[in-house]
């Protein structure tokens, strides 16, 4: 064929890359956490960093686009197994005693944003107002995107570090982060912190949330679920 010496390098490149792929599947999570911690040291508050795979910044996820709602239109209804069905406006949520949390936000896909500032109403304060009935064992949350749902047990919902947040990262919650109002479940993986929260339903039996129906753990404790061993947030 060629008069010169030629070697089957093409095949070697392809086979080596196949090996890289296998190694990446096995050890990629380690490389990712190294990249993440390095980048957050080098450039902690750079939004462009989000374009780098493995960077510890918010990756914006949505399953049904970005629903829009102004604070004046906003309503949060609490219904189901409660003594009194209630509905709160945005202003009414602001009039509650605020709870402030500054904790890590850990996603089940691996990224973790350290020390995120949240402000809102403790979920237990809202639930107490409505008065859960004795057989109210579970809480189901609905998003006004019309698709996303999440669930908590009543005990989990009564924790101090589960809040209905109206402020995040030092300002009103933006549309992409689930504004005007979202849930923040600090000790659990991010999919529990439903965005665009509009309805809370108490019931006697568990109704799995969006990702739980797709196989993710219902009790999504950080570091103790979904087969992951991240550092817990507490």
């Amino acid at each position: 064929m060629d008069p010169e010496i030629s070697k089957p390098i093409g095949r070697r490149v392809i086979l080596s890359m196949g090996a890289v792929g296998v190694a990446g599947i096995a050890y990629g999570s380690k490389i990712q956490s190294w990249v993440g911690s390095t980048l957050s040291k080098v450039a902690p508050n750079n939004s462009l960093i989000g374009l780098i795979p493995g960077a510890d910044t918010f990756q914006i996820y949505t399953v049904a686009g970005f629903p829009q709602m102004s604070t004046s239109q906003y309503k949060l209804s609490v219904n189901g197994l409660v003594k009194k069905e209630l509905s709160f406006t945005y202003e009414e949520l602001l009039s509650f005693k605020p709870t402030l949390l500054t904790k890590d936000f850990q996603c089940v896909t691996g990224w973790r944003v350290p020390n995120v500032h949240f402000k809102g109403v403790a979920l237990k304060d809202i639930l107490s107002k409505a008065g859960p009935k004795n057989n109210a064992n579970y809480v189901l949350f609905h998003s006004f995107d019309g698709v996303y749902t999440e669930s908590l047990s009543i005990d989990q919902a009564m924790r101090f570090d589960v809040i209905v947040a109206y402020s995040m990262l030092g300002g009103p919650i933006t549309e992409e982060h689930g504004g005007p109002v979202r849930l923040y479940v600090a000790p659990m993986y991010g999919y529990k912190s439903i965005k665009w929260l509009s309805e809370i339903t108490l019931s006697s039996s568990l109704q799995e949330g969006y990702w739980e129906q797709l196989g993710y753990d219902v009790n999504a404790w950080i570091g103790n679920s979904n087969g992951r061993n991240d550092r817990p947030v507490d």
Partner: peptide, 15 residues
Amino acid sequence: FPINFRTGATFFHNV
């Protein structure tokens, strides 16, 4: 697969 594989796979898919 173990869930760590999924994290690694996602990372390399992105890279």
